[in-house]
Nucleic acid binder design. Structure first.
Lengths: 221, 221
DNA sequence: ATCGAAATTTTTTTTGAACAAATATAAAGT
DNA sequence: ACTTTATATTTGTTCAAAAAAAATTTCGAT
């Protein structure tokens, strides 16, 4: 019904749509799909024919509710498989993305339901991202980005919003993991970089770029 | 490296090669791939360019050792995923074939190894077919077809050599399952049909066609 | 009104897979 | 040796999916 490539377009449009109230621009999509604007326009017409997006030329794209369902279903599968890979097969969280990119396109509703149940109906994937349920509903996204937190606060690291191996390996080097307790010692005015303390260990340094991609939960004490 | 379609050709050639010492004929492949001979010749040239088969025109195809490795790797993945689907997700053995046809093409050596270990290094899939190991070695195929067994023997059902839903559902109707104990009461001379007793229940009837596709192990007592 | 950036149309290209029709080959029988 | 037949191959097309280059149009800002 929907091809591998089409599903990837929908997923990308879904993610871009979260960052704006406007329609998603052709160029933005082209960048993420690693193609050219002309190719994107082409594909958008196809997706529009299939009623998966609303596409007004020069106005950007929006997912139809049907398109959104498909995007959410792909995201759901991606995140469930990531849980499987980490929880059941013992992969590291920085190793699972590429494999999940393949598994997310396996087509079987029955399989997804059974996998979900087998994993104990997880609400979050190994990177802290919420997993949509079978009806395509996301759990409440209760987490904030570390970059929005103030000096003096204590937080718990719950996830990341950037999944590249290089980023995740950088976190490992700094000593940050899911569940790490972070104490914000200082925020440098000039470059918005962070000085933090991780758990009981010594102080570390985080650039704003890194802080932007860490999801945290406030500790109320 | 090797596409979905190429892998399916290799798998099919592998299976056909088991039934003959000659090279595998173009037509035989065409039948199983549901294509025409002309298309097969075409693909064989491509596979030959990639050193996956030895192909002399008019002489049939043989897998190169590299091609055989690829075929065995696909078969290994197919059977491991079937074990996963049945043992871990609770699927019925007649429901897993189509899903495994998709999963068998997921490309990650690391994933396969971890899956194998997670499943406890199974030697047989849910249909009783042997699972090649990481080096592409098949375990000994110690089972015989029920059709080769003599009157009076007791056997244990270990697998099937036909995987269609309709066949598997026929077995369910007759009352046969993996592990069923079968007592051969009589073999009808005329049509080679079987009268059997399954476990402690009453007698059943099996056509020769069915008996040919049941794998069993002799019980020595 | 015009300019430059962004987006679109049109036309091609590429790739992968398959097929029909015409042709060639091998093998078997006479 | 010749003919028949089944099988296999070649050649030339087709089709579909995805992407792109080049030419053109539209939008937005000034």
């Amino acid at each position: 019904m929907t091809s591998f490539t089409e599903e990837n377009y929908l997923k990308i449009i879904y993610k871009l749509a979260a960052e704006t109230t406007e329609g998603v621009s052709t160029n933005a999509v082209a960048e993420l799909t690693q193609t050219k604007a002309a190719s994107v326009t082409d594909m958008l017409r196809k997706l529009s024919d299939k009623q998966l997006v609303n596409y007004q030329k020069y106005q950007g794209v929006r997912l139809t509710s049907h398109g959104e369902q498909v995007a959410l279903s792909v995201i759901r599968k991606h995140r469930l498989w990531e849980v499987f890979l980490v929880d059941k097969l013992g992969f590291n969280w920085d190793e699972v993305h590429d494999i999940a990119e393949q598994l997310e396109h396996i087509d079987s509703e029955e399989l997804v339901q059974r996998l979900d149940s087998f994993l104990g109906f997880p609400k979050y994937d190994p990177h802290g991202d919420p997993i949509p349920d079978g009806q395509g509903k996301m759990p409440e996204a209760t987490y904030k980005h570390l970059a929005e937190i103030n000096v003096g606060e204590k937080v718990l690291m719950m996830g990341v919003s950037e999944h590249s191996s290089s980023f995740l390996q950088h976190l490992a080097k700094v000593g940050l993991n899911l569940g790490s307790e972070i104490n914000i010692l200082e925020i440098n005015e000039f470059d918005k970089s962070f000085s933090i303390k991780i758990g009981e260990s010594s102080a570390s340094f985080l650039s704003h770029e890194v802080a932007k991609n860490i999801l945290v939960k406030l500790l109320n004490n």
